[in-house]
């Protein structure tokens, strides 16, 4: 790691104030991506603003008809929350699939969403559940939030405070892991809310998380595995690497989508 100034913020407001004052500072949430990147000297922020003591960024609650999760809520807390399991079991399920137990004990939903790793799990949930990302400044619909590889609509110094998920009627997440890193080679989150069906794909897209419109159209007609017969993803625009080329990823999108729909209907 390169040297940096360490700062601790006890509240979201203090964090934002510090970000305004410090030059070239980054927020440190769970650190499960940022710190390995810094260790490899691929990132060199001049300062870190540690959010781990900011109690007002933590917590899970129902607000109206939305499940609202604080940005510093750790994966383990989402995975094991009775409230999440009751309201959006697919989200608890997804949180329990991130990394490994020790990583889930540190990693946070806000950190994952702000980082927007193209193979991360939460972006798929946000997109498919039509979540709203609430920052210290504004509310950003998920459709407008994820703008590319490791890129989001967040401005400098803007802090995710919480994420609000409308409750779906049915939802499920299926993930095919990279055998080495265990990140998603393909992760598909399907969600049905009223007539609206959304299918979000992570891990596969060369430009990050995306919605699979042909899958959505087919499932809107009928939310059933059979509706996906003959529906496939195109290989163009998908990642290729030593573990999975674009054609294989395209195939896996179909498989994971079918399995996710079956799982969603089984609940």
């Amino acid at each position: 790691m390169y040297a940096f100034n360490y700062n601790r913020a006890e509240t979201a407001r203090k964090a934002v104030n510090l970000a305004g004052k410090l030059e070239d500072a980054k927020f440190l949430a769970g650190g499960q991506t940022l710190l390995p990147t810094m260790k490899q000297r691929l990132a060199s922020p001049g300062g870190l603003i540690d959010l781990s003591a900011a109690a007002d960024l933590k917590g899970i609650e129902m607000k109206g008809r939305n499940l609202v999760i604080g940005a510093m809520t750790r994966h383990v807390d989402v995975a094991t929350s009775e409230l999440v399991k009751e309201k959006i079991p697919a989200l608890a399920d997804l949180a329990g699939m991130i990394g490994d137990p020790a990583v889930r004990n540190r990693g946070t939903i806000g950190g994952s969403v702000a980082n927007d790793d193209p193979a991360a799990d939460y972006p798929a949930a946000c997109l498919a559940l039509n979540a709203t990302i609430i920052t210290n400044k504004r509310k950003i619909p998920a459709d407008e939030f994820f703008t590319g590889l490791f890129e989001t609509a967040l401005e400098d110094g803007e802090l995710i405070v919480k994420i609000s998920f409308p409750l779906p009627n049915k939802a499920a997440y299926e993930k095919f892991r990279n055998p080495a890193s265990r990140y998603a080679i393909v992760g598909v989150f399907v969600a049905k809310k009223g007539k609206d069906v959304r299918v979000a794909v992570t891990g596969a897209g060369a430009n990050g998380v995306f919605r699979a419109s042909n899958f959505e159209a087919a499932l809107t007609a009928k939310f059933h595995v059979k509706a996906l017969e003959g529906i496939s993803a195109k290989a163009e625009g998908l990642n290729s690497d030593i573990h999975a080329d674009a054609a294989y990823r395209a195939h896996l999108i179909g498989v994971m989508a079918r399995r996710a729909v079956a799982k969603a209907n089984a609940k």
């Binding site: 360490y6 601790r8 440190l28 650190g31 499960q32 710190l35 390995p36 870190l48 540690d50 781990s52 137990p101 020790a102 990583v103 004990n105 540190r106």
Partner: peptide, 11 residues
């Protein structure tokens, strides 16, 4: 349980 290689002592 956490991975002590992926967290700052100051945290």
């Amino acid at each position: 349980a956490i991975k002590s290689c992926t967290t700052l002592a100051l945290s």
